[in-house]
Computed example of a mutant assay.
Amino acid sequence: MSQAFGKVAVLLGGSSAEREVSLKSGAAVHAALVQAGVDAHLFDPAERPLHELAQEGFDRVFIALHGRGGEDGTLQGALEFMGLPYTGSSVLGSALAMDKIRCKHLFQVAGLRTAPYKVVSQSQGFDCAEIMAQLGHVMVKPSHEGSSIGMAEANNAEELAQALEAAFKFDDEVLVEQWLSGREFTVSILSDKALPVIEMRTPSGFYDYQAKYQSSTTEYYCPADLSAAQTAQLQEMAEQAFALVGAKGWGRVDAMQGDDGEFYLLEVNTVPGMTEKSLVPMAAKATGVDFTALVVKILEQTL
Rank of each mutant, 00 (worst) to 15 (best):
A129H: 11
E130P: 07
E130K: 06
E130Y: 02
A133K: 08
Q134M: 06
Q134F: 00
L135V: 08
L135Y: 06
G136C: 02
G136D: 04
H137V: 09
H137F: 15
H137G: 08
V138Y: 03
V138H: 04
M139S: 04
M139H: 09
V140A: 03
V140R: 04
K141I: 06
P142Y: 02
H144C: 10
G146M: 04
S148E: 01
I149H: 01
M151W: 07
A152R: 13
E153W: 15
A157H: 11
A157D: 13
E158K: 11
E159D: 14
A161E: 14
Q162K: 10
Q162H: 12
E165H: 13
A167C: 06
A167N: 05
F168V: 05
F168D: 06
K169P: 03
K169M: 04
D172S: 12
E173C: 04
E173S: 09
V174T: 03
V174I: 09
L175R: 03
V176I: 06
V176R: 02
E177W: 08
E177A: 10
W179H: 14
L180D: 13
S181H: 15
S181A: 15
R183V: 03
R183F: 01
R183L: 05
T186V: 12
V187R: 00
V187Q: 05
S191P: 01
S191N: 15
D192S: 08
K193M: 07
A194Q: 06
P196V: 00
V197R: 02
I198N: 00
I198A: 10
E199N: 09
R201V: 15
T202D: 09
T202G: 08
P203F: 11
F206K: 09
D208K: 01
Q210W: 12
Q210R: 14
Q210T: 12
Q210H: 11
K212P: 01
Q214G: 07
S215W: 12
S215Y: 06
S216A: 15
T217G: 09
T218N: 10
Y221F: 12
P223F: 06
A228W: 00
A228H: 04
A228S: 12
L234N: 01
E236C: 11
E236H: 13
Q240E: 11
Q240R: 08
V245Q: 05
